[in-house]
Computed example of a mutant assay.
Amino acid sequence: MTTTSVTRPPTAARGPVPPALGARRRRHRLRVLAFLSPWLIGFAVFLVYPLVTTVYLSFTNANLVSAAGWVGLRNYRFLLEQDPYIWQAFRNTAWLVVVMVPAQVLFALAVAMLLVRLKSGAGLLRTVFYLPSLVPPVAATVAFVYMFNPATGPVNHILETVGIPGPDWFNSPSWSKPALTLLSLWGIGNVMVIFLAALLEVPTELYEAASLDGASPWQRFRYVTFPSISPVLLFSVVTGIIAALQYFTQAMVAAQAAGGLHSGAVPGYPEGSTLTVPQWLYITGFNQFHMGYACALAVVLFAVSMVFTAALLRRASGFQPQEVAS
């Protein structure tokens, strides 16, 4: 294949900008900055300044009472070598990322695909599946702790009627995180709605063509549905991982509601099984007043979130279709 080169006409040399044109450009830039100023101010005040301050305080012994003194990398060395709870918190948080996030995404996708296929009653079921996501997290967690109470909760009573011994759920180190996962599956309404919108946008012509070619349901999902909703799937996974790394409210409320007076002895009742990194950050910063160390935890958590996000985005970019050279 021969290539032909196209000769472009020479561009005219740029002369000095007329004063009137330069003034109009400056006024245009000022108008743009004026419209952007609310966002720029909010970005600087609520993101840049707190982030820079957190990084600075992570190298100090700030305690919310006295003036902060510079301690260098002492907080980070304590995090890696001496903190008795940090690795348990990281293991629990990693469990949530590896188990809870895929379970949420797959369950939300399955529910959305079911609602798309329903011929009648889909509107009612959409409402039923979405409403739990509107319940405040504290109220939902307290209700779940009551429902899964091994002695008085209805869940274990229902299991006993069918001959299945109910576990201790939030009172057992082995079952506390699965119970939190069930709580997260109950509130997948937001993710379900996003998947539902993506599935409704898939052209029906593609399914018809695949059916004419004899594609099975799995092949239609793999070669038609999955490529069409992959951006939404990536968005759900990234946001789910970030939310799991920031998991705080449900784990804290479940530990205190299930443990009662015993929940304060060891963080993350029972036996540290529900202790997450944001929880330990809160305890060290606002209960023990080690704000410098809490800032170091926040910086590490932020770095881990960025690494996860960058790795996922880089991995997803490899699935983009490539142009075929002729």
Results as ranks from 00 to 15, higher is better:
96 L>N: 04
192 M>L: 14
102 P>K: 02
186 W>T: 07
180 L>I: 07
80 L>I: 06
268 G>W: 09
31 R>C: 01
190 N>T: 15
224 V>A: 06
34 A>D: 07
67 A>K: 01
151 A>G: 09
234 L>C: 11
160 E>I: 05
325 A>W: 08
203 P>C: 07
42 G>W: 10
169 W>V: 08
321 P>L: 12
109 L>W: 07
306 M>L: 15
152 T>I: 12
93 T>S: 14
323 E>L: 13
189 G>D: 09
33 L>D: 06
122 A>T: 07
230 S>M: 13
194 I>H: 08
167 P>Y: 00
88 Q>N: 10
184 S>M: 09
294 A>W: 03
51 L>M: 14
27 R>N: 09
177 K>I: 10
206 L>T: 11
238 V>K: 03
162 V>L: 13
236 S>H: 03
133 S>C: 01
141 T>G: 04
102 P>L: 08
290 H>C: 02
318 G>E: 00
309 T>V: 13
184 S>T: 10
280 W>F: 02
9 P>D: 07
321 P>N: 10
82 Q>K: 11
239 T>P: 04
54 T>R: 07
82 Q>P: 01
291 M>L: 15
115 L>I: 07
125 L>D: 03
125 L>F: 13
286 F>C: 00
245 L>P: 03
253 V>S: 02
220 R>D: 00
157 H>S: 14
211 S>M: 10
86 I>P: 00
288 Q>K: 08
73 L>D: 00
151 A>D: 13
196 L>R: 07
91 R>A: 15
240 G>F: 02
312 L>K: 09
253 V>M: 02
249 T>N: 10
150 P>M: 05
206 L>D: 09
195 F>K: 08
200 L>Y: 12
177 K>F: 01
30 L>R: 15
198 A>Y: 01
41 I>H: 03
35 F>P: 04
250 Q>H: 05
167 P>R: 03
109 L>R: 08
325 A>P: 00
123 G>N: 14
62 A>D: 04
312 L>Y: 00
104 Q>E: 14
166 G>K: 05
79 L>P: 05
125 L>R: 00
284 T>R: 15
214 G>F: 01
161 T>L: 13
204 T>D: 15
197 A>G: 11
278 P>I: 03
85 Y>S: 06
9 P>V: 12
124 L>K: 08
252 M>G: 06
286 F>W: 06
88 Q>T: 12
280 W>Y: 03
99 V>L: 13
122 A>G: 05
128 V>T: 05
84 P>R: 13
313 L>R: 11
148 F>L: 15
284 T>S: 14
240 G>W: 11
284 T>K: 14
80 L>Y: 01
199 L>K: 02
209 A>R: 11
229 I>T: 05
76 Y>W: 11
1 M>R: 07
26 R>E: 11
251 A>R: 09
12 A>I: 07
45 V>W: 03
64 L>G: 06
237 V>M: 05
6 V>T: 11
